[in-house]
Nucleic acid binder design. Structure first.
Lengths: 143, 143
DNA sequence: ATATTATCAGAATAAAAATTCCGATTTATG
DNA sequence: CATAAATCGGAATTTTTATTCTGATAATAT
């Protein structure tokens, strides 16, 4: 089981992080990305296509084609990828699965989860990929 | 999509919370629980069986049988149900899905997620069902 | 005793998510 | 122009999770 994001979303995040530490508009094939991230080519390829549709990643077809970051790392945040792939529902839904959980009809952990949820949202939406670059670099070389 | 727990786990949490606000050892049939929580009888029944195996819930077979809390609400915490159903992996795994995420090889959000993860764990393991009783009561009557 | 009403175990089915495959199209290059 | 190397779109497949069903067994009440 994944932690909070779907597997597809995790791969999307990894792919974008990977591209964000590379030279701008430097193109990588799906095969290259898959090898560096150690994930199946077909899968990462499909995920990058989704991100291409939504404009976060750019792609070039044909020979010497591949994928690249469509925007500057300083204008992308992790939440952008999450939004496109998993959507933002998890930031609204009740963590215990109760229907209609709200400030009016809170579940037993509504308040506490509310804080956590907001912190999680901040974690994903405060820093840009540019600001995460150093850390990303360290992680990716260790794969 | 659920927030962090599987649907099965959500139902398990709801069932135990439901039983925790009732008089000790008062027995409820799967049908009663399903009606009060507004969830399918067959499903909640199956989930309560899992919790029965693990000793959190007790059951009585045959006529006038049903389910009841096997322990006192003051000795049960939400984390106990999570552990039995989903396991505690989510408190170890990398939120971005990177392999081998650790203090030595941290992912870009390792530290921040670490805090959140610990807070989430606290949320589930600090208070007992007894301490949550009031809040639980309020939520369940509103269903 | 017998009928009734439960849980229980495990199989069966359905739905969702993950993963792969394929054929079409695109583009660079010799 | 032909070939090679990519992405693309959509279908197909596999795997996982959710959900329901079924028949067996157990316990109670009459």
């Amino acid at each position: 089981m994944t932690v909070i994001f779907s597997k597809t979303c995790e791969l999307g995040l990894q792919a974008v992080l990977f591209l964000s530490i590379k030279k701008e508009k430097r193109i990588f094939t799906a095969t290259e990305v898959s090898q560096e991230l150690k994930v199946p080519k077909e899968y990462i390829s499909k995920v990058m296509q989704i991100l291409t549709e939504s404009g976060i990643i750019g792609s070039k077809k044909g020979k010497n084609g591949g994928f690249y970051l469509a925007k500057s790392p300083s204008s992308i945040k992790l939440i952008d990828i999450v939004e496109v792939i998993d959507g933002l529902e998890i930031f609204n839904n009740c963590v215990l699965g109760f229907p209609g959980c709200s400030n009016e009809k809170p579940c037993p952990v509504h308040e506490k989860w509310g804080k956590l949820r907001d912190d999680a949202y901040k974690m994903l939406s405060t820093e840009t990929l540019e600001q995460l670059k150093e850390k990303t670099l360290h992680k990716l070389v260790s794969l």
